[in-house]
């Protein structure tokens, strides 16, 4: 029994990643059809003849229409900028929590997690109420006399950035907190003792030693942000191009499952390759 326990993660990964991925891969190589399901089978067995039809057309189609490439790039850009902003906001917060008196830390962490008690969808809707033309933000700014025309934020990329940063901030703070709270206070004192100003200590000791947290947090934000659908759909405008919305449209509006599957497969590859590369660099740096 005990020997089987290490297999659990593999079972999990197989059941919820490898098998769905294989199904998706299979659909992406098939021909679309008006049927149930809306694609033709990959292989057919008729009269002792096995016919296997691998259709690469869906992938070729992705390269022909610039929409897909532009959407991929735009998704990566939006996710990358959001991740950076999340990091810039999340790092000081995590640092402050890690340095807070022991008793207060749990309360502060609780406050970070508290928004999760409300539905994600509801929270994104709430941002519409804040950002819309006669919403909370514009009304407040106008009544203060700072602006006389309402700012157009909703249905722009800025609203998408706001939504992503707001939603994913806890995913950045928690891993950062975990590494920063484990940081040995003696090291910071040793650095000061050896003549380093507080900022130098931060740059030479704190930041390098918290890199695992920075990387973990950044991935936890970047990966789901690239594929994000709800936030660009609700807060973004017609110009906001993200691969999640394109995917949705292919699946539910065009009912083109094979192309939608191809879009999803390429997205996984686009995400997986840089991450694998990063891991490699990281483990090599640790060994050195």
């Amino acid at each position: 029994m005990r020997r089987l326990v290490p297999l659990v993660p593999f079972l999990w990964l197989g059941l919820f990643f490898v098998i769905p991925f294989a199904v998706l891969l299979k659909i992406s190589f098939s021909e679309p059809a008006i049927a149930m399901p809306p694609y033709l089978p990959l292989w057919e067995w008729a009269d002792g003849v096995l016919t296997i039809a691998i259709n690469l057309g869906n992938y070729i189609f992705l390269t022909e229409d610039p929409l897909y490439l532009v959407s991929y790039l735009s998704s990566v850009r939006i996710a990358a900028i959001s991740t950076l902003v999340t990091l810039l906001i999340g790092y000081p917060m995590a640092y402050a929590i890690a340095r807070a008196p022991e008793g207060r830390r749990n309360i502060l962490l609780m406050l970070v997690i508290l928004p999760f008690w409300t539905s994600f969808l509801l929270r994104v809707y709430a941002w519409i109420g804040i950002l819309k033309a006669n919403g909370v933000l514009n009304n407040a700014l106008m009544s203060l006399g700072l602006i006389d025309q309402p700012l157009v934020i909703l249905q722009t990329d800025i609203a998408v950035y706001l939504g992503i940063v707001y939603t994913y901030l806890p995913f950045m703070i928690l891993p950062l907190y975990a590494t920063l709270s484990r940081l040995d206070g003696d090291l910071l004192e040793a650095s000061a003792d050896l003549g380093a100003r507080p900022l130098t200590t931060f740059a030479t000791v704190t930041l390098p030693l918290s890199m695992p947290g920075v990387l973990a947090g950044s991935m936890l934000v970047f990966i789901p942000a690239v594929g994000e659908y709800v936030i660009p759909a609700l807060l973004g405008g017609p110009d906001t191009l993200m691969i999640g919305t394109v995917l949705w449209n292919e699946f539910f509006l065009n009912r083109d499952w094979p192309v939608a599957s191809a879009v999803a497969i390429v997205m996984v590859l686009v995400l997986a390759l840089p991450i694998a590369l990063l891991r490699r660099i990281q483990s090599r740096a640790e060994k050195a």
Partner: peptide
């Protein structure tokens, strides 16, 4: 501390890992 002409050897050694 960073301006004092003293240095300390820590019990934990506090070497930068």
């Amino acid at each position: 501390p960073h301006q004092r002409d003293t240095n300390m050897m820590f019990q934990s050694y506090a070497l930068f890992p």
